[in-house]
């Protein structure tokens, strides 16, 4: 519950949140509501891309810092969640690319590193099949992995994913289909 309105953060609409944020004296309060409303979903979205908790924490903070700086200019052309998801996805992808460049890693090496960190991660508690699925996911190209995550784990509609990633629904369907086939092959072979 927040500031005497009796409403939970999740009960505020996008319009209400953006409206509150535009009032200077309520800016911090509105931002706090946005964080409370979206932090978990964005965290899991980023975590599935980056695997590591600390990296995810950094990128989640970066995402919200960008939201804080850019929300004033947000015009509700798309949903707030779509916009947040897009920022988070771009931040996570940039982070992965920077990591590859910084460590001069090839794609295969980065996959191996992420896969190893999966085995050693104290915050990973999946069963054998889930570990295998995560490892299979790491063999996919970054964008294909994101499509798979959004469709499979988050059960998002293709139209929503298309709006976030700026891709056509047809391309997304094909991407998901390829991802599933590759994952199945990996699981059967390992």
């Amino acid at each position: 519950m927040h500031q005497g309105t009796g409403k939970k953060a999740s009960e505020y609409s996008d319009q209400e949140l953006v409206g509150l944020f535009s009032e200077p004296e309520k800016r911090e309060y509105a931002f706090n509501l946005i964080v409370l409303k979206f932090q978990e979903r964005l965290y899991w979205h980023i975590r599935k891309i980056l695997i590591d908790h600390d990296d995810t924490d950094d990128i989640l903070q970066n995402t919200f810092v960008k939201v804080w700086n850019g929300l004033e200019n947000f015009r509700l052309d798309s949903g707030l969640y779509t916009w947040l998801y897009r920022i988070a996805t771009n931040e996570a992808l940039s982070f992965l690319n920077q990591k590859k460049r910084r460590l001069a890693l090839s794609l295969a090496t980065l996959e191996k590193k992420l896969s190893d960190s999966l085995d050693a991660d104290e915050y990973f508690n999946g069963d054998e099949l889930q570990i295998k699925l995560q490892k299979a996911l790491l063999t996919l190209p970054d964008k294909q992995r994101i499509v798979f995550n959004m469709k499979y784990f988050d059960e998002m509609k293709y139209e929503e994913i298309a709006e976030i990633l700026g891709t056509s629904v047809g391309a997304l369907k094909a991407s998901f289909h390829h991802a599933v086939k590759k994952i199945e092959k990996y699981i059967l072979e390992h």
Partner: peptide
């Protein structure tokens, strides 16, 4: 598409 994949729990295995 993939009966093998459908068997796996969709629960996110991270803590």
């Amino acid at each position: 598409i993939s009966p093998e994949l459908a068997k796996i729990s969709k629960e996110i295995p991270f803590r």
